[in-house]
Structure formats: structure tokens, C-alpha cells
């Protein structure tokens, strides 16, 4: 996730200089947070968790990075978009906005897929797959697709807000 090299902080406001401890902790913690978020998303159907919490947690990881390393660093390394962009919907904001748009589309598409199969809009189904090594029985819920949509919307929307407010 992080490029692991630690950029020189020269071009940033010296007032915002963060300590080595904070940067090291962040670098260690952010991957853990992200993995936890994915775990919360996947297990949400059976245990506490779900798309919303996972989304907010992911955004927290991004926010932590932004505070410690600065927004520019976040954009360049974590998201990988370097186009500065002058317009409102360009550069990294476009990526964020695209994320929540995709999430919304995914959630709705799942519902429409149910309609195509002849069930009411947004009907969900569960499939039990037997005989999987290690797990024995795996429960595949179509609701996970919907939850993934929720996750993407939350991540995209909150990051957009964070980015726009942070840039001010």
C-alpha cells in the first residue's frame, strides 16, 4: 500500500512536520486497518460488520494517511493518481466520485439482476457450497454484492467530502 520509502518532507509546510514515530505507526497500522475493513465487509452477513462500517473504517485509514503524510502523498501513493487537474471533477476527485458512482450502480445492478431472474427488485439469495477444502461448507450470499456496493459508495462519498473539505 505504502511505497515504503518515506518522501522528503521538503515541499510541505514545515508547520505540518510529523514525527518519525507517527509516520512509522501509520505505515504499520494502515494496512492492518484496511485488512480489518475487508474482513468486516466479508463477514458482515453472519457477524457484526457490514458494508457501511467497513467503508467508514477504510476512509479512516485514508484519513490517517492524509493527516500524517499529507493529501498529496495520499493521492500519489495510495490512490496512484498524479494528474493535478484544475477542474472540479478531475484528478483524484474524479476517482473518488467514480467510486461512489460505481458502488451505486453495483447495488442497483444486483437488484435488477434479481428482476431479470423473475424475482422482486433487490431480492437476495444464499447458496451453500459443500465440500470446499478447509471450510467444508461455504455460504455465498448475493447480499455481499449489494454490501460491496454500499462499501464503495461510503468510501467514495466520504473520500470526496474529505478531499474537497481538506483542499480548502
Amino acid at each position: 500500500m505504502s511505497d515504503g520509502q518515506g518522501r522528503p518532507a521538503g515541499r510541505r509546510d514545515p508547520r505540518r512536520e510529523t514525527t518519525v514515530i507517527a509516520r512509522l505507526v501509520t505505515r504499520t497500522v494502515v494496512p492492518l486497518i484496511l485488512v480489518t475493513a475487508v474482513a468486516l465487509l466479508v463477514r458482515g452477513h453472519d457477524l457484526p460488520g457490514g458494508g457501511f462500517i467497513a467503508g467508514v473504517l477504510t476512509v479512516t485509514a485514508f484519513a490517517l494517511t492524509a493527516i500524517i503524510y499529507g493529501l498529496d502523498e495520499l493521492e500519489e501513493t495510495l490512490v496512484g493518481v498524479t494528474v493535478p487537474g484544475r477542474g472540479v471533477l478531475s484528478g483524484v476527485t474524479e476517482t473518488f466520485a467514480g467510486t461512489f458512482a460505481a458502488g451505486l450502480a453495483l447495488a442497483a445492478a444486483g437488484g435488477i439482476a434479481a428482476m431479470l431472474a423473475g424475482y422482486p427488485f433487490l431480492s437476495q439469495a444464499v447458496v451453500f457450497v459443500e465440500g470446499v477444502p478447509l471450510y467444508h461448507e461455504v455460504e455465498l450470499a448475493s447480499a455481499l454484492v449489494f454490501d460491496l456496493g454500499v462499501y464503495l459508495v461510503v468510501v467514495g462519498a466520504l473520500l470526496t467530502i474529505l478531499k474537497v473539505v481538506g483542499r480548502e
Partner: peptide, 24 residues
């Protein structure tokens, strides 16, 4: 059976309500 259509099929009732019964 191998496929559940008319029930939530999840252990986390809160989430089942959110993504299935009250998905709209």
C-alpha cells in the same frame, strides 16, 4: 437446501435486514 431464496440466511440479523429485507 443448497439455495435459500425466501429467507435471509445470515447470522447477523442487523445486516440481513439492511441488505435483504430492507434493501430498498
Amino acid at each position: 437446501g443448497p439455495v435459500l431464496l425466501d429467507a435471509g440466511g445470515g447470522g447477523n440479523l442487523v445486516n440481513v435486514i439492511l441488505v435483504d429485507f430492507r434493501a430498498f
